[in-house]
Structures are given as C-alpha cells and as structure tokens.
Design a binder for these strands. Structure first.
Lengths: 229, 229, 229, 229
DNA sequence: GATGAATGAGGTTTCATTCAT
DNA sequence: GATGAATGAAACCTCATTCAT
C-alpha cells in the first residue's frame, strides 16, 4: 500500500467519520420530533457544525433520512446474519422463528429505524402521484444512499425465504404454502408489531397485555402456521 | 318544540352540513398529498370557501384531521356492527373471522381512514416528548373531535373481545389464551396488512403474491390460531 | 350598476392600488441595486408590508419584475401614441422621427424601464438553454404579467411600421428598403443609445460629447436614411 | 540572465498557463449560465482544480470576470489592428467601414465577450450608487485585471477616430461632424446590434429579417452617414 | 357568518470566500 | 502551491393562523 493510497483511505475514513457523526445527530433529532418537524438547523447544532458544512455532506434533508434508513437496514441485516449463523445447525423452522424474533426485537428497540425502513419502502413502491411526493421522490432517488439501500434491501426477504425452503426440505416446515406467502404473513405480523410499538411509544402494555408476552405469542402463532399442513 | 329550538336545530344542522362538506374536501386533499403536505388553502379551494370560513369551523389543521379520524372510526364501527348483525346466529369463531374480514377490507379500501386511525392512536398514546409534538398534542386534545373519538374508540376492541368470549363459551374457539391477547395478535395482523396496503400504494401484488390471496390466508391463520388449543 | 358589482370593483381597485404601491417600491429597489441584488425583504420594507403579504400579491420576484416591465411597455406605448397623435397631420417621415425621439427620450429618462424591456425581450426569445434560465423561464411564462405583456409588446413595432408605410405612401420616405429593415436599423440605434445611457449612468457626456447633441444627431442620421433612396 | 530569473520567469509562465486554463473554464461557464448564475464550484470543476486553488489565482469572482473582459478587449483590438493593416492602402472611409464590420462580426461571434465589454464599461463609468454595487466596484477596481484593461480600453476608440480623421484628410469622408460624434453614432449602432444579437440568442432572424442582411444594411447606413456632408 | 388580506416565524438551500493542513 | 472542508450570511418562499370589515 503506497503512501498515496494510505492518505486517500485516511481521508475517506475521515469523511466517513464526519458523516457518521452527522447521522448520529440526525437520528437523535428525527427520533425526537419526527422527520417532518426536524430542522436542519438543530441537527447542525447537535453535531456542533455549521449548517453550510452539514450541506457539504448531505445535500438534502431527505438524503440524510435515507442515510438513516441505510443504517437501519444494515443493522437489521447484520442481526439477521448473526441469528442465521447461530442457528445454522438447527432445523429450518428453528431458524425462521429466530429470524422473526430478530425482527421483533429490532422493531421494539430501534423504533426510528423501523419507521425509516417503512418509509423507505413506501417511497420505493410509490410511483409518485401527488405533485410534491413526486418531486421528493425524484430528488431522493438520485441520492447516493438511495442506491446503496437498493443493493441491500432484499437481503431480509431473501434470507427468510431461503430458510423457509430449507425448513421445507428438512421436513421441519410442513405448510404447503409458497414460501413467499409465508413470508408475507410473517412480515405483516412484524410490521403490525412494529407499528404498534412505534405507536405505543414508551408504553409497556397494550390493552393490559405486556409487550413481552405479546411477542412470545406472535412467535408461537408463526410456529403453528409453519408446522401445520 | 319551540320556534327557538327549531331554529337552533336547523342552524345546527346547517353547520353540520358545512362541516361535512369541509371534511369531504379535507379527505380529498389529505388522501392526495398526505397530512403534512396538505394546505389549508387548497382545502378551502376544494370546498369553494374562503380560508377564513374554514377556520370558523375548524380552528386547526390537526383538528380537521381528527374530524377525518372520527369519521374513519365511525365508519369502521358501522361496518363491524353490520358484520356482527349478519353473524349473530353463527358460532363465535365465525363472527370473529367475519370481523377480521371487515378490518381487512376496510384497510384496503379506506387507506386514508386507516392511516388516520393509526395516527390517532399514535397521538392518543403519546405523552408528548418533543417540543412540537407536545404542543400539537396539547392543542389537539382540547378539540371537539378528539373528545368525540374518545367516546367511540374502544368499540372495535370491545366488539371483538365480546365475540371471542362468545366463541369460547360456545366452544368454537378453543384457544386458552386471554381474549385480549388474541385480539392483539389479530390486530397486529390487520395493522400490518393496513400498512403494507398503504405502503404498496396502487400495486396489486407484493413480492409476486396477489393481495387478494394474501387476505384469505391471513384469515385462515387466524382460524388456526383460534381453533387450536 | 348593482351594489354587488360596485363592491367588487372597489375591491378590485383596492387590490390594484396595493399592487401599484408594491411595484413602486420594487422599481425603487431594482433601480438602486439591480434585479439580481434586489431582496424581497427590502422591497417589503419599502412598501411597509410583511414579506408574506408581498408574496400574496406577487408570488415570484421574477413576476414582480415582469410587472415592472409591463408598466415600462405601457408607458412607452402611451408616449408613442401621444407623439403619433401630435403628428398625424404631418407627413409620415416626420411622424417616424418623432417616434424615434420618443424612444430616445424614454431610454434616457427611464433607464430601469428600458432595461426591463430589454430583459423581457431576452426572456421572450430565449428558448431556455441553461438549467436555471430554463427554470426561470418556465415560472415566468406562466405569470399573469407575462401574458399581459404579450398582448401589448408588439405595439411599438406595429406603430412604427405603419408610419413608415404611411411615409412611403405620401412620398416623404424615399428609401426602398422594407419597412421592417428600416425599423430594425432604427431599433438598433435606440437600443445602443439605451444601453449606452444605462451604462453611462448619471454622466452627461460620453467621450466629451454631450448626450443631448448626440441624440439630435442620431435623428438626423435616421432622416438621411429614410430620405435617401 | 541568472538562474534565479530563469526560474522565476518559468514560474511566471507556469502561472500564466494556469490562469489561462482557468479563464477558459470561466468563459465556458459564464457563457452557459451567465455571470450571476455561474458558480465558482463549477468553474473549478471544469478546470479540474480545487476551489481553493482557484482562489489562489483569482481572489474574486468579479476579478475572474474582468480577466474575461480583458481577453475580450485584447481580441477585439487584435482584430481591429488586422483590419487596419489590410486596409491601410485604402481610403479612410473604407478603413472605417472595415472596422465597423469587425465590430459587428465580433459582436455576433463572441457574445460573451461583447457582454463582458459592456459590463466593464458599465462598471467603469458607475460611481457606485447602491450599497452592493458600490462594494463590488471597490473590490474590482483594485484588481490586477482591472488595471490591465485600463491600459487598452481606449484602443478601439482611438483607432476609429484616427481613421475617421484620415478619411477626412483624404477626402473620402465628407461629413463635417466631429470624429467623436461619428464614432458615437457608429458605436451605438454596434452596441444595439450586439445587444440584439445577444438577446436574440440562437435565432437567425428578427421580425423576419435575416441577421446577415441586417448587418450589410447597417454598414451602408454608416457609409451614407460618412459620405454625405 | 363570511371573506380577503395580512402576518411572521421559520424552512431549506446556496455560495462566495476563508482556513487548516 | 494545492486541497477539501468549513463557514455564515443571506435568499427566496411557505403556510398555519389571525384580523378587520
């Protein structure tokens, strides 16, 4: 490695460090007041940086949000891979349920991330109807982070599908439905759980049911679903 | 009935008519661009009314949104009651599944309403952390429609719980879990379905699975859940 | 005239009054620092009005500039018509030279107006090449004043052409060139004079020649041009 | 010549090369979007140089523009000298008309240059009224290129005046007006032509008159002007 | 009750210029 | 000499809400 590349890599890393500090701040602010009410001013304040510099790294508020979404999916993927790794010796059904568990823990712990992922999906599928939404969509879809996300967005889906297939193959999953359908039903559960969590805010119960118990039951349902023909 | 009250009731009705025309317009606009991007100007335009008058009837944009949410819950309740009525001769499980069916059809047809309900719940549970959110919450919670919703918000929950209990009583529901938990799992499903629908926008498939098939399967899962011990 | 229409016309006039006050202020500011450096803030200040109100009347800085341009052309037309009226008994050539005289006085007295007219022409002919220019062009061309100008922009041209033809008919103009060409040469003279005046700023001489003498000579040249075959 | 000076002259030449590359880029950008909309960033991009370096060579955007203006006048002078050289054997009037021809061709081919010259003149004569304009003027007038231009700005004027005098002397120019006045009238023509060209953008006709024909006529008028007493 | 006008506190983004390395 | 990063002062425009009539 020449000095040149060392320098350049150091520089790159430097930029990454700054970007990350900004994203940290953005997360803080977004989490506090929501994307719509977040002000670039405040984010800059939190980083301890001028607004101008902020825009040097992220040329749009939306882009900054997409950076958060990217982190969100990255983290999710990492956690899923971990779970996969820990369960590769087990039967498929075990693995699938472990993945669901990851999803649910994630959606409970990383509420901002969960919402970012949902928002990203929303944007991703919208063909841009309303004027404004259309404009925003345009701008976002040219951003760097948008593309970065594109590359990793399907990993969760693919992982789960693969494990369902493995479960079918090893006989631990008996349902005859298409893997995609099974995924969807699980995904809906997770999203519902997510949304209810994010809606619930800091509460620990919902209609007198403690959230912890709830999660356990969700997984049991999934098990039943997969095991029965 | 005196002339006085006749006049006043006519006046009241008059006011109601206006309010409803406004809410109609608001729905149109909210549905088109979302709450955040909706402009009071445009709503006034759609009603064919001055902005000043608009504010005579609704003193806040949020309040107007709550009026939409109120309608949303009203309609949902009405549909649920209907389903209940049609299934009162059947076993409890049948009735519960019918209610789920209503939820899902509703969330697919009335996307704006679904989101309004979710947003309302979000607001309802939030204790208001961020400055702005706090301010908004304050304002909203004093509004007329907020209180109106309070009175009917629990109806869906109560209806479903009652039918689950009935099902348990008549033996058609064998699960030993608490009705509230069963409700929650179903509710999560519905919310997930809702969110995915609203996210999906105008698409008819999701990962190659047609939405219609999806709904049917959701209900089957619920049936399995309720029937198995 | 009913009360209704009286009201409405009064209202209209009221709006016109305000608009005119705004345009007055805009002229002051534009003349002082040029269009590019003019700030809406300052214009609002000069009118004694909030920025918001300013935007109630003119939704774009460019549009406000077009309002100035509209005034400019209106005034020019008025002055041309006057000159025409005063010379209708005279031969055509006399009339044409009188019109030129109007142009030149105008460009010397109303520098801002002259520049506005030139800028308008620039915009009018540009098919929008550069990104920004294109964007601006779009916005402007939908403005009310843009259309208003469109209706009167050709009057100067038409008036002069008509008089040239009259001069040819009555024998006072002997040049055999097409009227349009004669117009163009005169127009170039005027524009040059305009530009030199606006460039010269407040100076009264240019390379030691007093501006007054200069104008007279310009007209003599035109006369020569028209009279010779 | 010592090594020292050799080095320094090589360095100087090096600097000149860089400066010229920068000016090349600046011309490209200015021509594309106009001075006001030109961004130093883009210019730096086009040169393939950092913005910091750009500012090492030109400490102001305006100064860079003046460099362009300097080039513009330099080129104009060169072309005028050429024409002069080609016509030194001819009578004065011939020469004067040839110079006019140069002016007109120039203003048609080098639109950016023409505008730069006009802007320079504008700045040169303005005593700086508006705050901003005043500030700009201050800064510019201390710049290197400003002074460089000062030295050559009068060449066109002087050349033409000299030829007019020659024409009067050799009898080919019969007009009894002062040479300065004759120059002015011609200059106004040229400026008008310039402005109309730059206004016209890419169009080839103006009110149905082809630009080529127009130029020829302009010169005929000038001839008439000079030949008649 | 209704209306058009007014308000003003932001909001995002831009960019010439400067600085530290 | 060169570079990328930093700065900050504006600039334009938005829009929920209020007010005078």
């Amino acid at each position: 490695m020449t000095i040149k590349t060392m320098n350049s890599s150091k520089v790159l890393r430097n930029r990454d460090v700054k970007e990350n500090r900004i994203i940290d701040a953005a997360e803080e602010v977004f989490a506090g007041v929501g994307f719509a009410n977040a002000k670039m001013d405040e984010i800059a304040d939190v980083v301890g940086m001028s607004k101008g510099s902020l825009y040097f790294y992220f040329d749009t508020k939306e882009n900054l949000y997409m950076a958060v979404a990217y982190r969100a999916i990255q983290l999710l993927n990492k956690l899923l891979y971990q779970a996969l790794d820990e369960n590769k010796a087990e039967k498929g059904i075990h693995s699938v349920l472990a993945l669901m568990d990851v999803f649910m823990n994630y959606s409970q712990r990383y509420i901002l991330y969960s919402e970012a992922i949902l928002d990203y999906m929303s944007l991703n599928r919208s063909s841009g109807q309303g004027r404004i939404k259309a404009k925003m969509t345009m701008a976002i879809k040219e951003s760097v982070f948008w593309r970065k996300i594109q590359d990793i967005q399907n990993i969760p889906f693919n992982l789960v599908i693969a494990e369902i297939k493995r479960g079918k193959a090893d006989g631990s999953i008996k349902s005859r439905e298409k893997p995609e359908l099974l995924y969807l039903i699980a995904w809906a559960n997770v999203v519902g759980y997510m949304k209810l969590n994010s809606t619930g805010g800091q509460h620990e119960t919902f209609h007198s049911i403690p959230i912890t118990k709830w999660k356990k039951y969700h997984i049991e349902v999934a098990r039943k679903l997969l095991e029965s023909e």
